[in-house]
């Protein structure tokens, strides 16, 4: 069984004024100039390098970190590199107010935990980059700095099944056996 509860240091994707970015699109996450790259290990270095203020994210992020973003994260193209680049950096979850539809499927199918937290915009002021966040995929419970609880959405059944299997391929094999 993979862990259904994780804890990590957060990166709050905010603009220069400290406000959470909405609609971070797939070109900001993984720019189209790198689309010829197909090795996941090589994708990490370009993560978010087209998002103002976050060009050096790949150098600062550590394995085990959690990304926290505003609404419609991953809008735009169907490119899976925009999910895989976070895998490459060892990011363990992405928590956002909402996600782009194809992005969400890409993440679920590749086993990247996405947690939808619709109330985030109202409470974002309580979050800071560097804080510690505990995320429970089963219940949607969040715990900020070991003290402040919030309620996000739990994983759906299919999301949990694919996450536990590893990815969509492993999930498919499991169903056949």
């Amino acid at each position: 069984m993979k862990p259904t509860q994780i804890t990590g240091r957060i990166w709050l994707l905010t603009d220069a004024t400290g406000v959470l970015y909405d609609d971070i699109d797939t070109d900001m996450i993984f720019h189209n100039r790198y689309l010829h790259i197909t090795e996941i290990a090589q994708m990490g270095q370009y993560t978010l390098d087209n998002l103002a203020g976050w060009e050096d994210f790949a150098q600062r992020a550590q394995p085990g970190d959690i990304v926290v973003a505003g609404g419609n994260f991953g809008a735009g193209s169907s490119r899976q590199q925009a999910v895989d680049c976070f895998h490459a950096l060892g990011i363990t979850a992405i928590v956002a107010a909402s996600f782009g539809a194809i992005y969400k499927r890409n993440a679920i199918n590749s086993g990247m935990p996405l947690v939808t937290f619709p109330a985030l915009p109202e409470v974002a002021a309580q979050f800071q980059t560097g804080d510690t966040l505990q995320v429970d995929f089963e219940t949607g419970a969040l715990l900020l700095n070991g003290a402040q609880p919030f309620a996000a959405q739990p994983f759906s059944q299919v999301q949990m099944d694919i996450y536990q299997a590893g990815d969509l391929f492993a999930y498919g094999r499991k169903l056949e056996n």
């Binding site: 193209s77 169907s78 899976q80 499927r105 498919g172």
Partner: peptide, 30 residues
């Protein structure tokens, strides 16, 4: 389709949606 503008084909009364590469590979296989 493994392209985000696949919804275009709804113009013909079809259900058409974009998917990612992992998923397209899974559809190929299964």
């Amino acid at each position: 389709g493994s392209d985000s503008h696949t919804p275009t084909h709804g113009a013909f009364g079809a259900f058409a949606a974009g998917i990612g590469r992992t998923e397209a590979a899974a559809v190929m296989a299964t």
